[in-house]
Amino acid sequence: MSNDVLILAEHLKGKVSDISFEMTGKGRQLAVAFGGKAVAVMLGSGAAALAATLGADSVLYVDDPALAEFNPQAYGRVLAALINDRAPRLVMVGNTSMGMDLAAGLSVTAGLPLMAYVNGLAAEGGALAATSQIYGGKIQAEAVPDGEACVVSCLAGAFPADAGRVGAGLVPALEQIASPVPLADLQIKFVRMIEPQSGDVDITQQPILVSIGRGIGGQENIELAQELAEALGTAVSASRPVTDAGWLPKTRQVGKSGLTVKPKIYLAFGISGAPEHLEGMRGAETIIAVNTDPKAPIFDVAHYGATCDMLDLLPALTEKIKA
């Protein structure tokens, strides 16, 4: 085993995802503590220029036409081969749409423990401790791998991104290789990208948002939120269960697989504050949360909060705004 940290960098549509920089910065810090190097790995086709933006000790860029778009099977194979070859101390993968397809499978194929949903990593005297955020953000679990090597999947936004960008003092050595494993016989074939539908309103452009979660109770109550939004001259946005149920269009979804919004005021009504929701709204200037559960994690990020019933609050607030 080496003392290196291997970081999987992600890119989508020609852009390196922030999680890649977040993990690279943290990975470099850990590599110092382990006495190894931080090696960022990027897979792609003709994307070496993207790889060169990663502020790791070195960047390994794997170039193959089969890696032009994310493909869980192709990525999984290449990473398994690299892990086998280089025996890193730590493998860092994002707990993202891409990383969620890879980390657990690698843990099995490479025979390494996995700590997932990680939002804290520390090297204590050279030993790793990882803190995972579980139970919808209500509980933290701090764990240590039983052996020395392991895989972690990191939550977006857990570490500062700027620490992982190429900067003045650091010009990483870029090594380009062909895929170390054959990728011609994949069972998974990328077909196409499907662009998001454009909506009636753009929730990322509103100075104030009325955002509702499962606490709205049912489709028949949506109009209570709509009336408030109308009075405020804005739109209703929502958490995932509301759009999955078809009560509001997908274009209104805030969060990990929805949109990221930064309004001046974000009204979060009946939203528990799961990590996947927070990913999309924690940058709002002022967050006001209303939730009947005083222990709801949303109150940890909100600036103001109340525990009254949103179904009573909505009409009361609409009236006050209209007055």
Partner: peptide, 25 residues
């Protein structure tokens, strides 16, 4: 076996908590 061991489980010590408004709707 998970291959890792939980040392400590705890409720998040939030950096901040919302200022709570009392009262009804």
């Amino acid at each position: 076996g998970a291959g890792s061991t939980v040392r400590r489980m705890f409720k998040p010590e939030a950096a901040g908590h919302a200022e709570m408004w009392e009262g009804g709707p």
